[in-house]
């Protein structure tokens, strides 16, 4: 693979974290325009840990994920009783406020005769961990995909667990879920924290991948994009948002020959796709059908036969 391709594939991996984070909240029926804030918090935190405090990379990533989770908890406490548009705009307000705070945030130390650290609107340059420690681009891509794989695996376990079922129940109807004994607020808070953790982790990876971050990267565009990924790829499974990212970045790269018309072509394609499949390519129905096809074939149990027989007769 050449460097450019590695760069694109790494980008797809990192952006997938934000998409998964937005997807997790979509499962509980809430739309967040603000997941980019946790991504930003993770990016700045892990950059500070490795580039300024000179601590190991793993610690930086862990700190990024932890601050992402903590911030999500803080925001989740007051906002999670809001619904729909009000929740969406509250998260938007929070995320934009965070972006502006990073524009005002200055914290620099001298290293190698040069200032390092977040410098307001100029951003945070020289997060040079991968160069200082000779991590090649391919190695870093493998780290990203290792973490992404682990996160996906965690999400799959989650979706099979009681907690995951509770997420989807609340997403369908929170009042009904509450009458079924689901503790709505704690479960939603858990979802928000997990989403914050995932976004924070992704942010840490992003900072080290690009070696610089600046507040402008984390504006509303990124947040709405990450929501769109879930919708394009499908809300039926955690692979959906991933597919969305691959389609978006893949399509953008492949429609490069449209040059100046790229966004016109791409925007139109997405709009048409959503008319055909309003819940994305891998929507719940398709996922369910695939699961059944996979599961049913090996062992048609006698009990099932009788039930089916009764229904047919």
């Amino acid at each position: 693979m050449d460097d450019h391709l590695i760069g694109i594939v790494s980008n797809i991996g990192v952006i997938s974290f934000v998409a998964l984070s937005a997807y997790l909240l979509l499962l509980t029926g809430e739309i967040s325009f603000g997941q980019q804030a946790f991504f930003a918090i993770g990016a700045y935190t892990s950059g500070i840990v490795t580039a300024m405090w000179q601590l190991p990379f793993a610690l930086g990533l862990g700190a990024g994920a932890a601050t992402g989770a903590a911030a999500a908890l803080l925001v989740g406490l007051p906002t999670l009783r809001l619904h729909g548009l009000q929740f969406a705009i509250a998260t938007l307000a929070f995320a934009e406020a965070v972006r502006i705070l990073f524009e005002l945030f200055r914290y620099q130390i001298v290293r190698d005769g040069e200032l390092v650290g977040p410098n307001g609107i100029e951003g945070f340059r020289n997060i040079r961990y991968i160069f200082e420690n000779d991590v090649s681009a391919t190695e870093f891509m493998l780290i990203i995909y290792g973490l992404l794989g682990a996160t996906l695996f965690g999400l799959f376990l989650l979706e099979r667990s009681r907690l995951g079922t509770a997420f989807r129940m609340i997403g369908e109807d929170d009042l009904l879920a509450a009458t079924q004994g689901v503790a709505v607020v704690p479960v939603k808070l858990t979802a928000a924290c997990l989403a914050g953790t995932i976004a924070g982790l992704g942010g840490g990876l992003y900072a080290h991948l690009t070696t610089y971050v600046e507040p402008a990267i984390f504006d509303v565009m990124l947040g709405v994009h990450s929501l769109a990924y879930g919708l394009i790829g499908g809300l039926g499974t955690a692979f959906g948002p991933l597919l969305g990212v691959v389609i978006d970045i893949g399509l953008l790269e492949s429609t490069r020959w449209f040059a100046g018309y790229r966004m016109i072509v791409f925007g139109g394609l997405v709009a048409v796709l959503l008319i055909v499949r309003p819940r994305g390519l891998l929507d719940e129905q398709l996922v369910h059908r695939i699961r059944r096809a996979v599961r049913r074939r090996p062992r048609p149990s006698p009990a099932n036969d009788t039930v089916l027989g009764k229904e047919l007769s």
Partner: peptide
């Protein structure tokens, strides 16, 4: 019923209109 899809779709068209 497809409120989120409409919103995301209008976002895609945002990109389109802005580039135009």
């Amino acid at each position: 019923g497809a409120g989120v899809a409409s919103m995301v779709s209008s976002f895609a068209i945002w990109m389109q209109l802005e580039q135009a």
